[in-house]
Write a protein that binds this DNA or RNA. Structure first.
Lengths: 261, 261
DNA sequence: CGTTAGGTTGACTTGATTCAACAACAGTGG
DNA sequence: CCACTGTTGTTGAATCAAGTCAACCTAACG
């Protein structure tokens, strides 16, 4: 199962890169020749710690992880949430020291590629390197949107925006159902992502639920009307730069996919 | 004057890249062989507009520019401020469509390198490309810190943090005096950078001034005690990744440089 | 010397926090 | 199978940081 999941995600990841820069057969071979070690990570375990000198690049096979920083006063800010198929620290390959933490949200399986192998790959395969560069540029674009989300949207709107972003990204890698998705987070995590308190997240979610914008069942979020949620969140997916990376085959057949227009 | 300023900034920029990845003589030649057009930009003029397909990469020769997005409700969020020596849209070279705006803050002179020339350069000179990649990774690191600034610091602390960041970055390129610097912004701009209102910025600055943390004179901000400001802002410069890019020769001799430890 | 953009200030409102209590639930071990 | 325990979710009341609105001041500039 693990082996299959791993090779499936690797294929998918290569596909993603191939959509971001034109890659040839040699690129493919080099990519699949990368040495890696699959490791299981317990929930809440740190994958990267601020101050670390990263020893490898990490690709999520399954599970979720999040990136965060803690202020001197001890307040935590979540910077991004990562899903299967995300390389969570390509930047760690090139920067000397991590300026933030990455932590497993759920139990994860990750593939770790040693730094030297990664460096050699981007050195010898310019186009693959460029695809990865573009990947980090898209990450940066998502950070920019989060600055807006935290700086200029109120809690209600920001929450809806976040829910739309997760939905769209999960959909893009073939996870997430048409009518909603599993969000394995406590209310503390969206709070830390939105720069508000868990108590306030609770009230917002309750309101959204009462208004019928979302329907919660345990941690499954069902969205009866994506367009409505999208509107409240002011969500415009351009910043995800998915245009060249539409629904993968797996999601085909699912007509009326969540957020695609 | 312009020609000198231009070649000075180009040299400095190459130097910066050379500190981020090992570059050789051939890289240097290729970099200086880049075709570019110098253009004067009036204050407030747009350099990049959301939805644009960028036609070239833009390097600031002098003046300041800022990056921003506007929500559907019309609220503006500033995402970054750029100073001479910054390539403001390296990402524009690789992404198809701009997901945000870049606008001149003051009168600027910029050098515009056509996109094809830029693409060719990074294709043929892997190490230069890597240095530029690292540059964009550092931009991303700054975005991350801004998410924290906006999400988890109060207005007072965020303002101090912003002032420290500008100081440190200006110092790193040899602008900015030891005891403070010129900040050619109206109070609306820090407000949009911090996700607060101009009125509130006014009150914060007034308070900081009253407490002696800063001394304002027109738009020159003098800082009597950097350590104190740094502390209130919770400023830790690691995220700027300047370690390999210390004060340039020009600033030499200026003992007791502002924020370096 | 009038016009205008930006800065300053006060009074009032509001979105979000804080604190605190309690409910729901999932494990865990007897 | 149930009692115990800890985590997460829910709710109310009081408080606070920041927003809003509006007036007025100031300096730069044609």
């Amino acid at each position: 199962m693990t082996a299959n999941a791993t090779s499936d995600i690797l294929k998918r990841t290569f596909q993603k890169f191939a959509m971001r820069a034109p890659l040839d057969e040699e690129d493919r071979e080099a990519f699949f020749a990368l040495p890696f070690e699959v490791r299981a990570i317990d929930p809440h375990r740190y994958i990267v710690r601020e101050g670390d000198r990263p020893s490898g690049a990490t690709l999520i096979i399954n599970g979720l992880a999040f990136r965060h920083k803690v202020t001197v006063e001890g307040a935590r800010q979540i910077l991004s949430v990562h899903i299967p198929g995300d390389f969570i620290d390509l930047e760690g390959t090139l920067l000397e020291v991590a300026d933030h933490n990455v932590q497993a949200l759920t139990a994860c399986q990750v593939a770790i590629v040693p730094r030297p192998a990664m460096l050699k790959l981007i050195d010898t395969h310019a186009r693959l390197g460029r695809a990865m560069w573009i990947d980090t540029l898209i990450d940066a674009s998502i950070y920019r949107e989060w600055i807006v989300n935290v700086g200029r949207r109120d809690a209600r709107s920001g929450t809806c925006h976040l829910l739309c972003e997760f939905a769209r990204r999960l959909e893009a890698v073939g996870l997430g159902e048409v009518d909603g998705y599993e969000l394995p987070m406590t209310q503390e995590q969206p709070a830390d992502a939105l720069g508000i308190t868990p108590v306030h997240v609770n009230r917002i979610l309750k309101d959204l639920d009462r208004e019928g914008l979302i329907v919660r069942n345990k941690r499954f979020v069902r969205v009866p009307n994506w367009e409505a949620l999208r509107k409240v969140g002011g969500f415009n997916e351009m910043y995800l730069h998915l245009d060249k990376f539409a629904r993968p085959p797996i999601a085909a057949g699912a007509s009326g996919a969540p957020l695609s227009r």
